[in-house]
Structure formats: C-alpha cells, structure tokens
Nucleic acid binder design. Structure first.
Lengths: 338, 338
DNA sequence: TAACATAAAACAATCGATTGCACAAAGTTA
DNA sequence: TAACTTTGTGCAATCGATTGTTTTATGTTA
C-alpha cells in the first residue's frame, strides 16, 4: 500500500500539487475553500508529508546531532532529555551519538553527522580531545555548533556551562566550615575546562580562608571509580594525611569511599568526602555523598534554546557563553558538625 | 561555499552525473580509468554524498528509531550502545527517543518516527502501555519492528528478551541456599512481561524447594526507590517478618535497604536483599547488592542483528524470539553464609 | 569492409515537496 | 468600457542521487 503524497491529493481534487502544497502550508494566495478541501482530503488519505523530500528541497533535515561522551551517565542523559524537550516541540528530532571519550570516534561522529546533513550539532567534548579541526569543519560548512559542559575556548562557538569554579569553591568552603584543614582534591590531567575550573575553585577557596595549598594533596587521574580508589590509597600513604577529599567526579569520590571503609576510616569523622555532579547513586551511598548539582535538564533546555536561536539567526551569529549556577548539596559524607 | 555534488564532479571531468554516480557505486559498466578519475576528483572536491537525496530516491533514510522508556537507566543506555555498535558499522544512524513510560508520549514518538521515515524501529515498551495500535501502524506500513526486554506477545514481531524467569529463579534459589525461608518479592502491577516472568520465577523456585507461598509477602508497586521504601515499611509491619527480599528492580531493593538501615535491621543478617538489573550503583551500596546481570550491551548487539536481518529480508519475515541467559551476581547483601 | 557484438557513457525520468513566474478570471477605478 | 489591480491556480524547474533506456565509440568477425 502506497503512502499518500500531495500528488494523490491533487489528483483526487483535480488540482495541481503546487496548490496542494500551498494549501497545506497555509499560503495566503490560496482560498479558504481550497485549503479546507485539501486538508480534509489529506486527512482522508492519511497523508503524511515526506520529510525527506522537503529536506532535500529546502536543505533542512530537521535533525540535530547531539554528541556526548556517554549517554549512560545521568548527567548527560538528563541534558539530552532537556534538549529533546525543546527540540521535539518544534518538530526537530535528535540523533544521539556517543564518543566514549575516544578522540577518533568523536571525529568520525562529527563527519557522520555532517554526512547525514543534520541541521546542527550540540556537543560535549571528549576528555581526550585537544584538537578541534573536526568541529571547525562543521563550522565552516555553516552548521551551527553549540557546546555544553565540556567546552573549549579554542573554538568560536556558543557554549553553556555551569560555573564549575563556583561549585568547587562552595564545596571547599563548606568543608572548611566543617573544620577541615587538609583538603585533598581529585582532578583530571586532561585539558577539559570543567576540571581546570573546579581545580581553580578549590585553590581559590583555600586561599580565601588562608589555608596553605599543598601540592601532594592534589591527585590527577581519569576520575573513574578505580582511579578514585588508587588516588585514595595514595593519599593514605602520606605522613600527613588529609582530613577531607573533594573529588571532581562522583565516581572518584565513590572509589575513595570504598577504600576508606576498607581501612575502617570514619566518614566524615576522620576524612570528609565530597564529589561533583549529583549522580543518582550519590544519595544511595553510605554515608550519602555531598556533591554539586548541575541542573542538567535545565542545562539541556538552555543549550537547545541557544542552539535554535543561532539556527534561526540568518547572518553571522555572535557566539554566546551562558554560565549557570550550580547548587551545593550537603549530605552526611561531609557533615562533621551535626 | 557550496558543498560538492556529483554534478560538480561531472562538470569538472566533462562527463555526466549518471556516470559519476555509477563510478562511485562501483558499477561494472564503468571503466576502471573513469572510476579512478572520479574517485580522485571526488576527494579533491571533498565530495560527500547527500544522504537526503539518495534517501528520497531509494526510499531509505538509513535512520532507525530506538524507543526506550528512559535513556538514563544504565540498562537501556547500554542496550542502546550495543545497538549503535552494530548500526554504525553499516552506515545506519540511530535516533534515540524516550517515552518516559508515558503511553501518549510513546504513541507520539512512534508517529514522529514514521513521519521522519525511519527505516525501522527498535523499542522497549513503556510500563503503562497495554494497547498496541501505534506499533501496528508501523508494521502495516512495512516498517520493521523489533522489541527488546519489555515486550509483548500481542504483537507479531521479533523480540529479544532475557530469561527473566530463570534470573529470578536463580536469585530465589540462592536466597534459599543461604537459609532464607520467608522470601518477600517486590513486583509491578503492570502487564509488563518481564515483571510477570520474574514473579513466576520467584513462585517456581519456592515450589521447587517446598517453601510455602505467602501472598502477603508479595508487594506490587512502581518499583522505584520510594516505592521500595514504602513496600519495605509495609513488610516490616507484618507479625511474621520476611528474612529476605527479592525486588524485581534494583531501585526497589535500594529503597528497602535504606529503610532496613534506618530500622537498624542487619543486612543480610536479619534480612537478605537482592535486586534485578545490575545497575552500576548496586556495587556501590553498603552492603553491595546481589542482583542479576542482563548483558545489556550484548542484548543490544543481538537486537540490532535481528533487526537488520529482518530489514534485509525482502519477503515476509517470520518473527523470531531470542532468549538470552542472565547471570546471578552474588554480593554481600545476600551472603548469610560466608 | 560491411555487419554485428560489446563496452562505455549519455539521456532522461524519477523520488515528493517547494516556489518563482505566468496566466486567467474577477473586481476596481477613471 | 478600457486599463489596471487583485486573487487563485497552474506550469515548470529545482533539490541531488539513482537507474532503465538509448546512443556512441570500440572491437571483433566473416
């Protein structure tokens, strides 16, 4: 059974396809009578416009590509959800692609999206990405690009980030207020701005409270669970142990928590603990983990709105940077003072 | 700057677009010399085929729609990853859509995918779905449909599931071997086969070991964290409390764990605990949660392979049902005997 | 070398929707 | 009533790739 086209409608009404097309698109030069007739017939024939055909004609696909390192991290999944909410409202569909933090895969993905003729790309950059030619390729083809969370200033594009500096600052300030003085920090060696910013927030908070910065308390790793374990073990070998750990990722903090428990070190009694991202599991841990919420769905909304603004803008659009405020979530893992 | 088309290549080489097209598609009637020349020129002009145009011509979009209740559950995210692995290998792109377990949203999504002219749909049915007209619409349009995990026998389509009965049976058998005799079960009131199957596995294991079935030990809910909490509180009001809880979802088990801790009830000492799905957080809980792994990435692979098999099959394809074996993962929450 | 086979490439239609332009009918104005 | 405007449709080209059907070279055979 064939799907109905505007030609079928036209034939049935003894008019031309162009009239049908105009009628369906509410063109002012078509009489109301014809419009109604066409709409009615379209219904009868269960007509559904062929997006492919119109995509070809007007060079739009109504598809946007979203690239995330991994979609099974709650943060990214929620941002994607936020993007979808906005996109679906205006007939756009979202293609989700995962780079798995692998640079080559990210490059391939960008190229695949360009080949698929997406109308634009929203991306969060992989941890191992430090050259951006693939994204520049998209920009040069006139494909709008908006980055969120894991962004870079090496590209002239709009970006939406949270104030990682502030989030980290608040965590460290909170730890200090709980009486901690030797606060360790798990960070990433990668040139990803979010981690650099959190590191800055950590350092600045220490300064602000006149707490000496001690390089041996900063451990760089990939910030996964196992990394957190290793980093914590390393810290425990120090003569002068920390009394708190602020990890740039919840997974890293989780690894630390496991190690501390294995060593029968009290949390937060001996060592307080805080993570970053408010992954869902953080409220399930024992003790529940202090962390920073990033309002991820909202971030997705904002990112999508910025994206579509740029998509509509005909001329050269000035890249915008939106900075969202994070929220410190205090849970037991850091509550030394009840 | 315009993107190169086959016409640009043709013009440059003083041949026609059809020759270029055939050369690029390695048509036997084109001389090797021409083929090489065309390929070289294509490279030079950085030609990328316009998928939209070829989609229109041969009625294929190279897009497949994947509908999941939510993409931020590790199980679904991993299945999607498994699907993507296969799909991307053969130039297909995956559109991920979330139904959020809302029936209306699921219907809209199916229709949107049909309108987007996807080449097929892979779906896991929402919890609240009990009529299937929307999926039948896809089938009638000749769009291949494959279901995974949350499936139904009311549709004549291929499906990939794990043996939920076996998984549940193994959990309950394990609990019995640990000495538990009053094993409670959290299930869903919904007509979702996975939960029905797990319930059957629970009942059958009890039977097999001559343990009486007690209706008051079975609690139906939505199986989220809060539901698990409520269900556990309810069980604790019984005169004759259970000595184990097997929840059909890890989140439900997590809720139970929180309540038990609040009541200072030892896990697994007083009450053993087991979930289902092997969500990542289950290894982070204290104690780590016994659960069932579903080999989700593999499930995605299998699902995609079945899907593409069906897509290639020209004639009426006989729906197949693939059943995968799950794996019991024993952790401390159920280890009464060390 | 005429007749025919084969290889290589051109021609033209097609997929379905869109749109600039042409054109006819109806309405308006002087 | 001639001249012009407005309104409603039709015509035909277009987007880029694909493909059945010629057409044009080239090669082979008798």
């Amino acid at each position: 059974m064939q799907k109905a086209t505007i030609h079928h409608i036209a034939e049935k009404l003894k008019i031309t396809a162009s009239t049908v097309s105009r009628a369906l698109n509410d063109h002012p030069r078509i009489s109301d009578a014809t419009k109604k007739l066409v709409q009615k017939t379209a219904q009868e024939l269960n007509y559904q416009p062929n997006n492919i055909a119109s995509a070809l004609r007007n060079g739009k696909s109504y598809l946007i590509g979203v690239i995330v390192p991994t979609a099974d991290r709650s943060f990214f999944a929620s941002v994607v959800r936020g993007i979808e909410e906005i996109a679906n409202n205006i007939k756009y569909k979202v293609i989700i692609c995962q780079s798995y933090d692998i640079f080559e895969k990210e490059v391939l993905t960008v190229d695949a999206l360009l080949a698929a003729r997406v109308d634009g790309i929203i991306a969060s950059i992989g941890k191992n990405t430090d050259t951006f030619a693939h994204f520049n390729r998209a920009i040069m083809e006139g494909i709008p690009l908006v980055l969120f969370d894991r962004t870079t200033d090496q590209l002239e594009v709009s970006q939406v980030v949270i104030d990682d500096h502030l989030g980290a600052y608040q965590v460290v300030e909170h730890l200090i207020q709980q009486g901690c003085r030797r606060i360790a920090h798990f960070t990433s060696p990668k040139k990803v701005s979010v981690f650099k910013e959190r590191y800055r927030g950590y350092v600045d908070a220490l300064h602000a409270y006149n707490i000496p910065f001690d390089e041996e308390l900063v451990v760089a790793s990939n910030l996964q669970l196992e990394d957190g374990r290793r980093s914590m073990e390393q810290l425990l070998t120090l003569k002068n142990r920390p009394d708190a750990v602020f990890s740039s990722s919840d997974y890293g903090a989780m690894g630390a928590m496991q190690v501390l428990k294995e060593h029968k070190i009290a949390i937060p009694g001996d060592i307080a603990l805080a993570g970053f991202s408010n992954e869902p599991f953080t409220s399930f841990t024992d003790p529940p983990l202090t962390t920073v919420d990033q309002f991820s769905i909202y971030m997705g909304n904002i990112t999508a709105e910025l994206f579509f603004e740029q998509l509509k803008a005909t001329k050269n659009f000035k890249p915008q940077k939106t900075v969202l405020k994070p929220a410190l979530i205090v849970r037991e893992s850091s509550m030394k003072r009840k």
